[in-house]
Design a protein around this nucleic acid. Structure first.
Lengths: 198, 198
DNA sequence: AACACTTTATGACTTAAATCATAAAACAAG
DNA sequence: CTTGTTTTATGATTTAAGTCATAAAGTGTT
């Protein structure tokens, strides 16, 4: 999103996180701008009985956690490294300075927030009114456009586990498994040794 | 959000909409920036069998529909005047010009998108993992902070119908009615001749 | 190779919310 | 005031997805 050169010019530092390390926690106040260099980060909530909801998954060059930073509000979710990951951290004050001095970056930020808002609008409507097959398919099709799914001879490989799909759509694993089987039977996607292709 | 003077300087025009008039429709490409002068606007989706999901409700000085404008994507929902409303319309090209020439407005836009993303994140988690009482209460408490609920001697008057609460939380009217009764019994809110107070 | 852990899979059952039906209040318009 | 529409309300019933139990296949580690 923001070029590494620019970030370093404003004293951003690179930090490494191990698998399942917490990057920030729900309820805390934001102190930094975060941008993935490598690896995979998820933002998620846990309800009272431990059930997870994944707000989004972020890959290289993507930033996350800006809304509360701009609003001086507590984080509404946790950020966790799904794999070993390297992240740029830029302090809030330096980030704000960067924005003021580089108006074109504001436009980039706007586009990025707009993109995420668009995704959330679509998924909110799906999750509230649509049946499991519709929800799962919408997520997969969005993922093809915006997550880093790779295409091979079988189609796009949906490299999410059934559990992740459930946590992103508000469905339980068993329901996702059954839904994906039903979608395969209908011919809208393929399962080739347990992996899902579209 | 953007001052009327600045909007008019860039040739924004005021347009009136009657109750239930469509402002823009799902699937269409954006052409304008919209900002409410007076009245009430809802953005919502209808699923295949006509069930509605309300993405958000907007009041005076609030803008809506920007994400697809920035992304050149089709609107993911409809915008409808809930009451008689007056709206500023600013063409996309003039809006972009306004942004370029007034960098401080970008920051305002960012804050506004951040706010909406924050709301969607909270509600998405609620809708996917929480039970009706939790969902309804969260919506109400958010509304007190961000919709224009008025405080009187009984507390904040939640001026949404049960149906609207249902369409905002993904619940059916009957469930909302029963949930609100249960919440009253627990003493977390009041019902005074059918109106809800918190 | 053996062991532990994760992921996918399936069947049986339970349950919370949706659906259906019906009606009384409240409100709005002529 | 009357009539039509919207909103709130309640009880009975249905159902789709969640829950529970159990297991096989796959993956990773020492």
């Amino acid at each position: 999103m923001i070029s590494p050169e620019l970030l370093e010019k404003y004293s951003a530092v690179m930090k490494s996180f191990g698998k399942n390390d917490i990057i920030f926690e729900e309820g805390n106040l934001p102190t930094h701008y975060y941008q993935v260099i490598s690896g995979e980060v998820k933002m998620s909530n846990y309800n009272d009985d431990g059930r997870e909801f994944i707000q989004g998954i972020f890959y290289k060059e993507q930033s996350f956690g800006e809304p509360p930073l701009f609003l001086n509000q507590k984080y509404p979710a946790n950020a966790i490294a799904v794999d070993e990951s390297e992240i740029f951290l830029l302090s809030k004050s330096n980030f704000m300075k960067l924005l003021e001095e580089n108006p074109k970056v504001s436009i980039k930020i706007i586009e990025n927030l707009a993109q995420r808002l668009y995704y959330k609008s679509v998924m909110a409507a799906e999750m509230s009114t649509q049946e499991p097959e519709h929800r799962v398919l919408k997520l997969i099709d969005h993922g093809i456009a915006y997550f880093n799914f790779k295409k091979d001879s079988n189609g796009y490989l949906i490299n999410f586990t059934r559990q992740q799909i459930g946590d992103l759509t508000g469905l339980r694993v068993e329901t996702v498994i059954r839904t994906i089987k039903a979608l395969e039977k209908k011919g809208v996607l393929k399962i080739i040794n347990r992996k899902v292709y579209r």
